[in-house]
Design a protein around this nucleic acid. Structure first.
Length: 504
RNA sequence: GCUCCGUUGGUCAAAUGGCUAAGACGCCACACUUUCUAUGUGGAAUUAAGGGUUCAAUUCCCUUACGGAGUACCA
């Protein structure tokens, strides 16, 4: 690659960034970094009616949380700025005019109503209305009207759009990095609107003008754009520009059923569809986010990278740097991939184990503080060391560790039937007196002493260990009993056993 | 409807003409832990269907079926 690689992520600020958008951004980011190139963020806000307050900030925050900040974009290294299309409005018209001058585009005066009528009319007859070569001369535009008529309409300030004049009877040979060669018959293409009557360009025009001006070398975008490739390709040709290379990414599909992943699937199946929590500014509806649900960005990124791509090796755990190193657009799949919430959790569990106990303690402390006061963060870190292997989220910690902080206030019914037997009371009383003689209250020593006592007296482990655990924890669960005793200390251990004796 | 893209276990997927079709998630069993997890070991489960080309097809070609996207003065 001789040219400096420059890619862009170009979302439109119509709401929070969907997980599919994050994946598109990720692949752009990986490709850029792999080739020591530049990752550009461009905001495609040409449709003012769909603009949503706060969406742009959300996009930037989401990219940063994921650890893939853009190199160039709004308010950052603005070498090719501005990066909001609404602020680039003045740039587009000249190219539309140029296309008209070269005969590649034309003015059209048809109202939305007449077009709508034609579409409905065709539909009723089982046909599709396509505005192109076969009917453009029957419609109201600068190809069907005389030059004088056109000028009169323009001078009168009538609303108009500028449409691209799709060629007739040509075959386009397009190339996509992921899909290979694609042949398109131009006769089925319609004359797309390039410039709207509100003075703004459509996506198509703005997109290729900006990609050209921003010197984008590779366009990596979702598969939903594949049908537009023919138009974009022709636009580059008509303007005499070199087209960038294209790669259309497969879609992310819902976990079950048909169609692409949507917010509803997340709500229904209980997983987030957005990286960060989002509050809709109009309805105040809250959409949950990966961050707030307790996912680590590394886990989400790792999972997303494997949706539609794989390294071809058996390695599955990849840091962002390793992904950059291994990433290759040629290894991206062609077919859509179903989203798997379980696997995302598995990744999160993995990355949880890699976090230090101290870092996790900082995250867990606020939760502990809600329940009781004055717990030392170092104690919390020690607790986490004992329980984190069984946790997927920080939010699992309390459920797994409350007995390190609070004595049980009840005993699990089924467990007590199993553990609390006739002889239990006496055994527990004996156990307390044994514990009282133990000077070194370490987990190891407790284990040696207590197990020694059980073996020496041929009591049977189950008869002691089960009720002991129940007394300490309140249920038959949790880590090693001796670790628990060591952590809560001698006094608390005895208190809990005596509390259990009192109920027997 | 039309156009384009796709189709390997339940899911993510490797292998690209050639040994018993990798691996991961999930599921099941066993082991460990005299608890619950986690972990370890093992297991069940796949080339959409039909036709062709070939000594040989998951891999190449065709048809069908199915899935997806697009078909806006939305991106």
């Amino acid at each position: 690659m001789t040219k400096n690689v420059r890619v862009r992520f170009a979302p439109s600020p119509t709401g929070p960034l969907h997980i599919g958008g994050v994946r598109t951004a990720l692949f752009n980011y990986l490709f850029a970094k792999k080739h020591k190139g530049t990752f550009v963020l461009r905001i495609e806000d040409t449709d003012q009616t769909r603009y949503v307050e706060g969406a742009e900030k959300y996009i930037v925050d989401a990219l940063n949380w994921c650890g893939m900040p853009f190199d160039e974009g709004p308010d950052k290294s603005e070498k090719h700025g501005p990066y909001r299309q609404s602020e680039r409005k003045h740039l587009y018209k000249q190219y539309a005019d140029e296309l008209i001058a070269s005969g590649n585009a034309y003015y059209a005066f048809d109202t939305a109503e007449t077009l709508d009528f034609h579409r409905k009319d065709h539909e009723a007859k089982g046909k599709t209305f396509i505005y192109n070569w076969h009917n453009r001369l029957k419609l109201s535009n600068s190809l069907s009207l005389s030059a004088e008529e056109v000028k009169a309409k323009l001078d009168a300030g009538e609303d108009y759009v500028i449409r691209f004049k799709s060629p007739q009877d040509e075959t386009l040979n397009l190339t996509d990095i992921i899909r290979g060669d694609i042949k398109i018959d131009t006769n089925i293409l319609d004359d797309k609107v390039l410039f709207k009557s509100d003075g703004m360009p459509t996506y198509h025009l703005a997109n290729i003008v900006d990609d050209h001006l921003m010197e984008i070398t590779h366009v990596i975008r979702g598969e939903e754009w594949l049908p537009s490739l023919a138009l974009h390709d022709q636009l580059y040709k008509a303007l005499g520009w070199d087209a960038p290379e294209f790669a259309h990414l497969p879609l992310i599909l819902k976990p079950t059923g048909k169609g692409k992943l949507s917010k509803r699937d997340g709500d229904k199946l209980g997983f987030p569809v957005f990286p960060l929590q989002w509050t809709d500014p109009k309805s105040n509806d809250i959409s949950r986010g990966y961050k707030e649900d307790g996912y680590f960005p590394e886990a989400m990124i790792n999972f997303l990278a494997f949706l539609g791509w794989n390294p071809g090796t058996e390695q599955e755990i990849f840091s962002l740097d390793e992904l950059i190193d291994a990433f290759d657009l040629n290894r991206v799949n062609k077919s859509g991939a179903r989203f798997d919430p379980d696997k995302t959790k598995w990744f999160n569990h993995h990355y949880m184990q890699e976090q230090s106990n101290n870092d996790l303690a900082e995250l867990f402390k606020p939760i502990v503080d809600e329940k009781l006061n004055g717990i030392d963060v170092n104690y919390i870190a020690l607790v986490i060391g004992l329980i984190k292997e069984r946790a997927t989220f920080v939010s699992d910690f309390w459920e797994l560790s409350h007995f390190f902080f609070l004595a049980p206030n009840s005993y699990d019914e089924k467990a007590s039937k199993k553990a609390f037997k006739e002889a239990t009371k006496e055994l527990m009383q004996e156990l307390v007196s044994i514990i009282n003689t133990i000077k070194d209250f370490s987990a190891e020593n407790l284990q040696t002493k207590i197990k020694g006592w059980i073996t020496d007296n041929e009591i049977g482990f189950g008869k002691v260990m089960m009720p002991l655990r129940l007394a300490l924890v309140g249920a038959l669960q949790g880590p090693d009993v001796f670790d628990i005793m060591y952590m809560i200390g001698e006094k608390e251990s005895i208190n809990r056993i005596e509390a259990a004796i009192a109920t027997l």
